[in-house]
């Protein structure tokens, strides 16, 4: 996955500044980069803090809190976008290969932390299952597996189509890459549709709600949390598609494409484990 030859560029092996030509060349080295001040971190932190507090106010039923919450969420999105844009601009001054390497590594660590949140939920469900006296717990319906199995096939399939998209891109077949990408996004949306139908069916027809019992709570929080991740993954893929359309990627610089791909595979693997745990096991 590493971009090719010139990667082992000056960054880590570079020596003294004195040995380099002054001016622009110095900017190529991220290690020569004095930090640039930015308003985005504090603005985003304030936005996320406000979102948390407003969620609390919505829970209390404070009038207008919902509107403010939507505003704060929108504001946070804008701040995040502004931040991302600043980075894209600043990166032109820096060694992009090194930046991509850092970002990729950071992204993997982020996925590890995500995996640990899911780990907490999996620990919950297996613990409850193996230490509880009765299984299945009272009120737990027989979960129909055929539709979810189709949804699973679609999501798993979308991992493959995404892989085809990336491979096509790396072979320089831009049009094919974009088509595969569109197909992936469509499959993700169809999966979410299946999920929505499933939730509606369980809630409405089966009267299987979050408050039915420990299993239903776990079912909804796990599928809900996963669904939120699918949504974020779809946003990432759409952004990537948009950037492909604008022709912003090339053979060496396509970190966000790879990030979106890994994120999507991650979401897919989590779903396979979820499907096994909640439906089959």
């Amino acid at each position: 996955m590493e971009p090719t030859p010139l990667t082992t560029s000056s960054t880590l092996t570079s020596g003294a500044l004195a040995a380099k030509p002054a001016g622009a060349a110095a900017h190529l080295d991220p290690h020569l980069h004095a930090p640039v001040p930015s308003f985005w971190p504090i603005l985003l932190a304030g936005g996320i803090g406000a979102v948390f507090f407003l969620v609390f106010l919505v829970y209390l039923g404070v009038p207008l809190a919902g509107v403010l919450l939507a505003a704060a969420a929108l504001y946070s999105l804008v701040a995040a976008a502004g931040w991302a844009n600043t980075i894209a601009v600043e990166r032109r001054l820096m060694d992009r290969l090194q930046t991509q390497k850092d970002l990729t590594r950071g992204f993997f660590f982020f996925l590890a932390s995500e995996a640990m949140i899911f780990f907490a939920y999996f620990e919950y469900i297996y613990y409850t299952r193996f230490t509880g006296s009765v299984w299945p717990p009272a009120g737990m319906p027989k979960l129909e597996t055929s539709l979810p199995a189709v949804a699973t096939l679609i999501l798993v399939g979308s991992s493959f189509t995404l892989n085809f998209a990336v491979k096509a891109f790396l072979r320089g077949k831009q049009a094919a890459a974009k088509n595969w990408m569109l197909l992936t996004i469509a499959m993700g949306i169809v999966f979410l549709g299946f999920q929505g139908f499933e939730w509606g069916y369980l809630n409405g027809v089966m009267s299987f709600t979050v408050t039915t019992g420990a299993f239903s709570s776990a079912y909804f929080i796990m599928t809900g949390f996963h669904g939120a991740h699918v949504t974020v993954g779809l946003l990432m893929l759409s952004l990537v598609y948009w950037r492909m359309e604008k022709g912003e990627y090339n053979r060496d610089y396509h970190m966000s494409l790879m990030a979106a791909e890994y994120y999507w595979h991650f979401v897919d693997i989590v779903w396979i484990l979820l499907f096994f745990t909640l439906y089959l096991f």
């Binding site: 590890a112 995500e114 995996a115 640990m116 949140i117 907490a120 939920y121 919950y124 039915t212």
Partner: peptide
């Protein structure tokens, strides 16, 4: 931090949903 903190967040989300959504965790 990377491996321990997310588990706390998960536990806290379940605790909060027990309080707010009457779930049964």
């Amino acid at each position: 931090l990377l491996l321990a903190l997310p588990v706390l967040s998960g536990a806290m989300i379940m605790l909060l949903s027990d309080r707010w959504l009457s779930t049964g965790f």
